[in-house]
């Protein structure tokens, strides 16, 4: 399943890049994070709770930045399992600067196996849309709020 979208953020590209490629910052916008464990600068493990329709699970995700070309292109591979289910996400993002604003183009190829794919197949699109909306509005709010300017002033 492929999901994609574009987001216009009122923040400079460097600041957006720094936020999105920092596991600690970006996971603050992930849904229901239980724990975060940084392995090295390009690998981390995160435990999230997620659900589709009646099926909910705690996913142990291993995340890897497989292609980082600051400050314009990143590719992230996330693999994980919950009891009875497995998920693999290959995410790409491209940042285009427009003065003090940034356009984020993102795409996500998601492969789901097991219980969630069986029971949730017909609900997946709706659930994904909802989660995506939450994640990106969170990103937007955090990057556009004055308080975030200080955090992102330090280049990654």
């Amino acid at each position: 399943m492929r999901f994609e979208g574009t987001l216009d953020i009122a923040a400079p590209r460097d600041r957006v890049w720094a936020f999105l490629t920092d596991p600690k910052q970006v996971t603050t916008c992930a849904p229901d994070v239980q724990s975060l464990d940084l392995t090295d600068p390009t690998h981390f493990k995160v435990v999230v709770k997620a659900g589709v329709g009646p099926i909910k699970g705690t996913f142990n995700m291993s995340v890897e930045f497989i292609d980082l070309r600051a400050p314009e292109h990143a590719e992230v591979l996330a693999r994980g399992q919950a009891p009875g289910s497995a998920v693999e996400m290959r995410n790409t993002m491209d940042l285009v600067a427009a003065g003090e604003r940034t356009t984020l183009r993102w795409a996500s190829d998601v492969t789901v196996n097991g219980m969630i794919a069986q029971v949730g197949a017909r609900l997946m699109q709706g659930a994904a849309d909802k989660i995506t909306q939450q994640v990106f509005s969170c990103i937007q709010v955090k990057l556009e709020s004055p308080a975030s300017a200080g955090i992102s002033a330090n280049p990654a």
Binding site: T111, V112, N113, G114, A117, Q118, V119, A121
Partner: peptide
Amino acid sequence: YDEQGNIQGGNFMD
């Protein structure tokens, strides 16, 4: 089954 072999119809909802 979908292309990944996920069962569609593996419970009484489906």
